[in-house]
Design a protein around this nucleic acid. Sequence first.
DNA 1: GTCTATAATCCGATAGAC
DNA 2: GTCTATCGGATTATAGAC
Lengths: 214, 214
Amino acid sequence: MTDQRERILACACDLYLKSGLDGLSMRKLAREVGVTAPAIYRHYDGREEVLSDVLREAHRTFAQYLHAALGEPTALERFVGAGEGYLTFVIEHPRWYGIMHTAPEQLGMDALPADIDAMQSAIHQFWIDRVRECMDAGILKGGDPAMASITMWAHAHGMAQLFHEGCLPGTEEEFKTLFKASWARLMAGVATEEFTKNLESMVLEEADMEMKTG
Amino acid sequence: MTDQRERILACACDLYLKSGLDGLSMRKLAREVGVTAPAIYRHYDGREEVLSDVLREAHRTFAQYLHAALGEPTALERFVGAGEGYLTFVIEHPRWYGIMHTAPEQLGMDALPADIDAMQSAIHQFWIDRVRECMDAGILKGGDPAMASITMWAHAHGMAQLFHEGCLPGTEEEFKTLFKASWARLMAGVATEEFTKNLESMVLEEADMEMKTG
DNA sequence: GTCTATAATCCGATAGAC
DNA sequence: GTCTATCGGATTATAGAC
């Protein structure tokens, strides 16, 4: 029954979110479902396939948090809304955020399943679209939206990681404030205007040239 | 003999750098050293203590990469040099970078040993000092150096993570270029000047206020 | 579809001989 | 200091009865 497979997946998600990757074994999963271990193999080929489904659920949930911003009327609000969705997901679902950034080999896979890879690409593309919108609206500086989105993506991802590692002091609420203040610094730039003038002509254009020719 | 303990540590580092955390078991370590497993316990209380020493080596190496920048004559060059040291370490030693950002519990420890915690603090402080120098030199905008350094730290860390996860396309050399271009964007800011003017008066000051009163 | 039973591996750690 | 031998536990996964 597909019914039972869904029950198993639900339990697998619960178990992972509660105990982490190491806590998600076929035996414990079976106990959680209320059957014995071999019964799981009737519905899943092995642990790897279970993890794939859990990972799929993580991406689905993450995409929901982001797509909520699509209801906003302006490019700026969709941009900010997507950022807030990201931030909320990071705070509310650290474990799901974690598995999404766990190397496939560590999950016992040689490579990511194609459909999950496609979900990642779609999420990445969603971000690029939000950035392009804001470029067109004169909110973000012009240029390649994919490049600018990498900068913001890296910043957000780094903040999330440092928070989850406990490298940033404070509670969740303080982290939210810290995150937004840091984002604002990224928007405005950390260097002085005088220095930036020199930097832009020296480094930025040179690097963009290299990227286009390389 | 301390001699043998050093040999074991060297093998443990090799083994970890080659096979990762899961590949570093007491049995495999013993085989690598050329003895049997119980012999390791004469020099180390257990796996946890071995991992502590490996982690210590990672921090030592990382600190060396950063401190090389202290030979530079100006604040800007020390700042840039530290950034390049960071980038080089990230590229040359992904596994060591990885273990430095692995949760203590995942290493089988309840907490980080005090001396390693102190090494982390020293590294963090080193960064804040470089930022403060550049603020004093008029290169970076004024404010709390610790806050500005978090923004840059998060960006660099995020770039490193995305690179190691394979989320960023390209070779190591292309990543270097990408990293520097992204850094330049962080220095100059991603938003337009018009938008930044509004943002600064709306969000940034408000957030800084919250941080100071909170 | 689920069960019992079990195979086959791996692990950390220890006792006691030498 | 190192060995052999072993304990006690975990895991994935399968065979075959029901």
